[in-house]
Nucleic acid binder design. Structure first.
Lengths: 215, 215
DNA sequence: TTAAATATTTAGACAAAGCTAAAAATTATA
DNA sequence: TATAATTTTTAGCTTTGTCTAAATATTTAA
């Protein structure tokens, strides 16, 4: 499988997770920052290899082999992210681009040894689940911080937005995976949320609260 | 720089190290298992980018930028090999193919952090020197085992042949980097060498002795 | 329910990197 | 030093993945 094919499978996989239905050509094009015509070409190729179900003008979905392949790429991406953060001391906003490259390294043995070396982690540095060698994903129960009521307390277990800007903002505010967050109050005017992070008071916008996963 | 360009630079670099002069198109083609015509095309491209000095029909050499680029690829290759052997517990005959992929990952920060994580090693698992971040190589003094006289003792510091078969043979005989090797006798008939490896007696052919570096 | 807007596909081009076959240059040899 | 052998380059073709522009299908909305 070429890098390009892998990137398409991964994009389709991620789009399927959120939409839970057929994925459109344009959606793929937008996610991959390419043109719809290029997407069409690749979809034909992937359909040829039985990695996607494709019907002209009707969008695509992953076949079982396609889904497994996509999960293996996600597995690699997330394990490498753990490696970069835990072992090489990268911060969580720096790892995505490097993991995008590392995820294409082909060696099952390598990835399984890496998995063991890292202690078989179940989540990456952003709180996203890591598929195991069989492609199984253990979902953890999580809610958006914005859904919590006043006086409820939770632990930060992930982020929805993984952009570098957002992650740097969190770092600056002292919010990390594992942080204890208590909702102290809510502003009905702008839906901003007053919280205590590990006992430090803080006010965050609704947009921020809608991108933090809490358990 | 594309993967292909990097592979050509690396091949030219390795050929230059042994020949110490202009490298021929055919030599590159043979090393890379490709056709001479493909090599010519790529040499033009690399010359265009000022990475090689190329004159039609006269062979090529690396420019300073080309040499530095090649050394950085070698640096990455060898550091990843150390990682695979030391951290992931691969054996030294398994790491080459994976390192061939990893050497193309682009991130200076990554490779320098990896270098630190590994404790700034100066040699890879086959005893080959690892260029530092500036491209400098610290050569260690070494001789071929076949050059030693009877009763001389040395430490195995590297292998000339890094093929999987040879490395597996060495494993089987209990010879590894750091093994103490004493030449007990030599057979003038076939130039085979009787040795003691960490006090275990053994007879090896001249071919084997000519591929082991000793200090 | 038909026209307009939008989405998707097709057709045809292009660049990268490889190949084969033929031409040209170099080197070896008689 | 000619000619033969070898090496290298050129010319032209192929595949992969991309693009633009045009054509076609689907969806939206009047």
């Amino acid at each position: 499988m070429t890098f390009s094919e892998e990137n398409y499978l991964k994009a389709i996989y991620h789009l399927t997770v959120v939409s839970n239905s057929e994925v459109s050509t344009n959606a793929i094009a937008e996610m991959m920052e390419t043109k719809a015509s290029s997407v069409t070409d690749m979809l034909k190729k992937l359909a040829e290899k039985d990695l996607v179900n494709y019907k002209k003008y009707r969008g695509v979905s992953l076949t079982e082999p396609g889904k497994l392949a996509a999960k293996m790429i996600v597995r690699k991406h997330r394990l490498w992210e753990v490696f970069l953060v835990e072992k090489l001391d990268f911060s969580w906003d720096e790892v995505h681009d490097i993991a995008e490259q590392l995820e294409h390294i082909k060696s099952e043995k390598l990835i399984n040894k890496l998995d063991d070396f890292l202690g078989n982690p179940t989540e990456d540095p952003h709180g996203d689940p890591i598929p195991n060698a069989e492609g199984q994903i253990v979902k953890i129960e999580k809610h958006l911080l914005s859904e919590l009521e006043v006086n409820q307390i939770g632990i930060c277990v992930g982020v929805k937005d993984t952009s570098s800007e957002f992650l740097k903002y969190l770092d600056k505010q002292g919010i990390a995976l594992g942080s204890k967050i208590e909702v102290v109050g809510k502003e009905s005017f702008d839906l901003s949320v007053r919280i205590k992070v590990d006992d430090k008071g803080l006010s965050i916008s609704n947009k921020i609260a809608s991108n933090l996963y809490i358990k």
